[in-house]
């Protein structure tokens, strides 16, 4: 079994026979017309398909930590979110930069994700299952992706994009989303216990398949850690996201190749 890349393939030509290398265009104006036409189709392909795929991957790896307002805790949500979300941007940062010199992967994916997730959350969690919209509103990730892409644009290096961009991508999850979450973290007293507004909403809207023991991670002595928890999580998330970015850039370099299988034996 052998496979090869699109470029420079004599063996392939023997298999398939020579193809015509005639062009369909004769003028620069015609060429530009074809290329602009392609842009109209390629832009939605990349943004919307990748957005849809990212909604799916986020569901399976971040899932309930992003579905519910009361699950956005200080330890797991800011860690798992950038670690998992960097996969698509890493793969396609390799693809867009290597083949097109475009530092747009993160932004394209998170914009597409936002489009898909807003439709899904409204249709499914609100219209279908009856949860209030503010309880299931998605987080915002576009700012994280802008930082990643900006570092790629400025440094033109996968190494520095990982080291600086992926780190920034991870540490801003909490501050970026804080304006949307703050109102739900206001303390209230509930039956003599101090809880947040988000917690109270969680008690009121019973979720039948995720009992409380699945959600609560800040238990017993973990509560004694004070304000340092969020920045500490952010820095740890930064370091592991750097490693995950490098891993997925490498996987992306394999996954996005234009390879052909030319013979089976």
């Amino acid at each position: 079994m052998s496979s090869e890349n699109s470029y420079g393939n004599n063996e392939d030509e023997i298999q398939r026979g020579p193809l015509s290398n005639k062009s369909a265009v004769t003028t620069l104006a015609q060429q530009n017309e074809v290329y602009k036409n392609l842009d109209y189709m390629l832009i939605p392909i990349f943004i919307i398909i990748l957005g849809g795929v990212t909604v799916f991957l986020v569901s399976l790896t971040i899932g309930d930590w992003d579905y519910w307002q009361d699950w956005r805790d200080r330890r797991w949500w800011p860690l798992v979110t950038p670690f998992s979300l960097i996969i698509g941007p890493a793969v396609f940062t390799y693809f867009f930069w290597t083949y097109f010199r475009l530092p747009i992967a993160g932004t394209a994916i998170t914009v597409g994700y936002t489009f898909g997730v807003l439709i899904s959350r409204y249709m499914n969690f609100h219209v279908f299952a009856g949860f209030p919209v503010n309880f299931i509103a998605p987080s915002t990730f576009i700012g994280m992706a802008l930082l990643l892409d900006t570092v790629m644009l400025v440094t033109r290096s996968f190494y520095f994009t990982g080291l600086i961009g992926a780190f920034l991508f991870a540490i801003v999850v909490y501050p970026l989303n804080w304006p949307m979450m703050a109102a739900f973290h206001v303390p209230v007293e509930y039956n003599g216990t101090l809880v947040t507004v988000a917690d109270l909403m969680g008690y009121e809207y019973i979720r039948t398949a995720i009992p409380e023991y699945v959600r609560i991670i800040e238990e017993s002595t973990l509560r004694t850690f004070g304000e340092a928890v969020t920045p500490l999580t952010a820095f740890f998330a930064g370091f592991v996201t750097i490693l995950n970015f490098y891993l997925w850039v490498w996987i992306g370099s394999k996954l996005t190749q234009a390879r052909w299988l030319t013979k089976l034996i």
């Binding site: 392909i45 398909i49 849809g52 439709i119 899904s120 249709m123 279908f128 979720r207």
Partner: peptide, 27 residues
């Protein structure tokens, strides 16, 4: 493919997360 991109969103976002939402209000 551009048209299919909308159906990818319908399948991977709307139909997948309908399942996620359903499980939280049923046994």
């Amino acid at each position: 493919m551009a048209a299919a991109s909308f159906f990818i969103v319908v399948i991977l976002a709307v139909f997948v997360e309908a399942d996620a939402a359903w499980h939280q209000v049923t046994i």
